[in-house]
Structures are given as structure tokens and as C-alpha cells.
Amino acid sequence: MGRWGITLPLTGVPVLDHRVLVAELADLGYTDVWSAETAGTDAFTPLALAAQWSDRLRLGTAIAPVYTRGPATLAMTAATLAEVSGGRFVLGIGSSSPVIVQRWNGVEFSEPFKRTRDTLRFLKAALAGEKVTEEYDTFSVRGFRLERTPEHRVPIMLAALRPGMLRLAGREADGAITNWLGADDVTKVRAEMGADGELAARIFVCPTEDADAARALGRMLISTYLTVPAYAAFHEWLGRGEALRPMHEAWAAGDRRGAAALIPDEVVDALIVHGSVDECRAHVAKYAANGVDTPVIALLPTGADQAELARALAPGA
């Protein structure tokens, strides 16, 4: 087994209560800790803490939105994480969604492909210590240079779902980060990205043998996420357009509960890993076998102790 990551913080667990678990992760076989941000913790603070609790784990954001921090602020934050982690930090950036960017942060969500591309190009120059004066398509920078250039190169990965962003990630970034895909979707995603560069995937794992409970949670999450236009287009491209059409129609009509109920079992089972701990671990490994370099477990709540489930899902367990 190669890389094996986990998303932190765990659901419902206070950030500071992760210290003991993080200190154990590398010995358990984990190689990576990845964070995210929607409306809970920010993407960076948990990683700054994890960097002090373990000196062996790679740390990455999956993802930090390119709209909600200015380009220079994003570069400074990335440089600081690289410093406090001793060069173990990977910056994952992406466009995020209109809800997070526009409705919650009051920033216009426009030209997401160009904004992500421009931010990537700025960050590559800034994190290399260059003085940046540039007119990008979506913003301009005048005379910015980091005062504390990272001693180690900071890899940058892009959140990517469809061909255009996947190709950009393969061509100009260090790789792509994707999510909400099944193990059998990986070959199509990998083909668009190309053989070069790292492919990381957040994989939603619900370790329970109560299939009805796992599917109920899965349907709620799928109806919430896959109705976002970018994810809807992603699954249209992956070939699930017809299977998800009834869900989209009910959602558009305002029937949220009905929309979730219309998601077929086979779609839920493809996108939500569930079953016994051993079955879940084997299913995650299938993503790696199909071309994911870094599978990143996103542990869904089952009522069981989250930290114990994280330990049980380790590759060496």
C-alpha cells in the first residue's frame, strides 16, 4: 500500500481532542492528514496543530477556496504552514461553490476555471520567492513578494472534477484532488488528468453493517452535494445523469426529502463506502488499485467512537 490519508477534524470531535490520535496515525500506517473547510473549522488551523503533534505525516488542504482569501494572503498562509511543518505541507486549492463563496462570504463567484488557473500561476511564482507584478484575467497583483520564502518547495494541487480542470491540474499543478466518485470512476478521471501528477480522492466511508442506515445518510449527503451544479455536471460526465435525473427534478421542485429518496441504491453504494471495517478498508484500497495515488478517508458518523474507527481503518490494522 502506498499513501493512505484521513480527513481531520473528525465529525463532532473538538480540534484539540485530536492530539493523541494524530500522534498515533503514522505508526498505524497513515501517511497523510487532509483538511477541508465549509462552515466548520478552517482548512489551515487543524493542520498547524497536527504539524506539532506528528513529525511524520504529510499535511494538505482539500481544499482552500481561491475566492475567500486574497492571493497574497493565501500565499502567506501556505508559506507559514510549510514552515511550521518542516516542508510537509501540500496546498490544495479550488473554486469551491457559489454557496460558500457568494452567499456566505459575499464574493462574486465568476469564471471559476480562470480564477483557479490564475491563482495557481500566482502562487507558483510567489511561493518560489518571486516578486509578482501581473495582470491576470481575474485579478491583478502589484509588487508582492513573500518576506519568508519557504525553504522547501510547496506542492500545489487543484480540486478538479471535469476534463478542463483535470487537464489543467495535470499540466500546470502537482496533481488533482477529487471527491464524490466511485472506485470504478477513477480510470476515466485519471485518463483526463494524464499519467503525471498525483491524484488524491476524498472517499466517504461509513463503517457500519447497517446498510439501511448507511444508505439513508448517503442519500442525504448525495442530494445535498450532487445538486450543486459542478457536481451535477461531474456525474453527468461520469454517466450517472439518467440515474440522478429524478433526484434533480424533485430537488428543483423544492421536494428535498423526496429528492433523497429517489437516489438509487447502486448510486449510493458506489459513492459511499459502507460495510464492516474490513470491507471498507478493502473498498478504499480498490480506489488505489484503479489509479488514485492518495486515498483520503472522510469518516462519516455512525454513532461509534470516531477515533477508534479511524484506528480500525488504518491500512495496517
Results as ranks from 00 to 15, higher is better:
I6R: 05
L10M: 15
V22H: 01
L25T: 13
Y30K: 10
T31V: 07
S35W: 04
D42S: 07
A43Q: 03
L49I: 14
A50C: 14
A50R: 09
W53I: 15
S54R: 10
S54E: 09
D55I: 00
D55Q: 07
A62D: 00
A62G: 07
A72G: 12
A75C: 07
A78D: 05
G87T: 09
W104F: 02
F109V: 08
E111G: 07
K114W: 12
R115F: 07
L120V: 06
F122L: 12
K124L: 07
A125C: 10
T133Y: 09
E134I: 01
Y136E: 07
S140T: 15
V141F: 06
G143I: 03
T149C: 07
P150S: 10
A159V: 02
R162C: 03
P163E: 04
G182L: 03
R190Q: 11
E192L: 08
E198Y: 10
A200P: 07
R202T: 15
I203Y: 06
C206I: 05
T208N: 01
A213P: 07
L217W: 15
G218D: 08
I222S: 11
T224A: 13
P229F: 14
Y231N: 05
A232G: 11
A233P: 01
G239S: 10
G239L: 08
G241V: 03
W251Q: 15
D269I: 03
R281L: 12
R281E: 10
K286F: 00
A304G: 03
A310G: 01
P315K: 01
A317Y: 09
